[in-house]
């Protein structure tokens, strides 16, 4: 007769492994996390080089050096960051429902995604920091060219450059994924409330600074940070954003 017996239960996969597997799932399509950011980096770098060549050819000798120095304000080195905001949104909006479909818990998904963000940010930061060091060496050799060595990069050591690149990515991932998580949980109404809350907080802070006359001390306080300290401190709002994201996600239903 049909031998009806309870099928042997599937062997369980330890939670730790499942978190790593969520990370592998996030990165199963390598183009998203590694391909496109580095393609953008490459394209932006080529454009910077073309611009530098054009300046060298077209700007007469006296102003040439100043024009090349001016490239330091192009922010070109940060061009992949805008794309990372998209990645942060997609990591939640696309992968979250898909992951639940693979019988993954929200907790496993969230931890795996957080680890993915940290690993990707560290990988990218390392790559960009190395390129920054190469560019500094070129500049030190007397050839003025600014793509990565922009903004604060000229003032700090390699370690701080890495830290700033790392925390900036983390902040972008945290904020983007938090918005996506709020949307996943509360849809359009959630977005409306979140944007309004952000606007109110910003306006409130400005009003507070202006009305109490504490604007100058606040700016002084901000300027008092070292560059390294400032970027390290960015991890605090990033943590808050991740917390908001998890608060939204841990009870987010799957729909549609």
């Amino acid at each position: 007769m049909t031998a009806i017996s309870i099928a042997p239960a599937a062997t369980r996969i330890p939670s730790r492994h499942r978190i790593t597997k969520v990370m592998r799932l996030q990165m199963v399509n390598r183009l998203t996390y590694l391909g496109i950011p580095w393609i953008i980096t490459g394209v932006a770098l080529v454009i910077s080089i073309v611009v530098a060549v054009l300046i060298s050819v077209s700007v007469p000798e006296p102003g040439r050096q100043a024009a090349l120095e001016g490239m330091a304000y192009s922010w070109a080195g940060l061009s992949p960051f805008w794309y990372l905001a998209v990645v942060g949104v997609q990591a939640v909006s696309a992968i979250f429902p898909f992951a639940l479909g693979f019988s993954i818990t929200r907790r496993e998904y969230a931890l795996g995604t957080l680890v993915t963000f940290v690993v990707i940010a560290a990988f990218n930061a390392t790559g960009w920091a190395i390129l920054t060091e190469i560019e500094r060496a070129i500049n030190a050799a007397g050839l003025t060219f600014h793509h990565f060595t922009a903004l604060w990069f000229s003032e700090v050591g390699a370690g701080s450059v890495w830290l700033s690149l790392f925390t900036l990515q983390i902040v972008i991932f945290a904020v983007a994924s938090a918005f996506a998580a709020v949307y996943a949980r509360w849809r359009a109404m959630g977005m409306l409330v979140l944007w309004t809350a952000v606007a109110l907080v910003v306006l409130g802070l400005i009003a507070f600074a202006l009305l109490t006359g504490s604007a100058v001390p606040i700016i002084d306080w901000l300027m008092g940070f070292t560059i390294t300290g400032f970027f390290a401190a960015l991890l605090i709002p990033a943590t808050l954003a991740f917390a908001l994201g998890w608060a939204a996600l841990h009870r987010a239903p799957l729909r549609g």
């Binding site: 599937a10 062997t11 369980r12 996969i13 499942r18 597997k21 592998r24 799932l25 199963v28 399509n29 183009l31 998203t32 997609q90 696309a94 992968i95 429902p97 898909f98 479909g101 693979f102 019988s103 993954i104 549609g256």
Partner: peptide
């Protein structure tokens, strides 16, 4: 749970799905 309403992430190919599945189904 195989749902008709599953939306596959952008850029995902069938081989990606089949690569990922064994990580979660013992």
């Amino acid at each position: 749970f195989i749902s008709e309403s599953t939306r596959y992430p952008e850029g995902f190919q069938a081989r990606h799905v089949l690569t990922g599945a064994p990580w979660f189904y013992a």
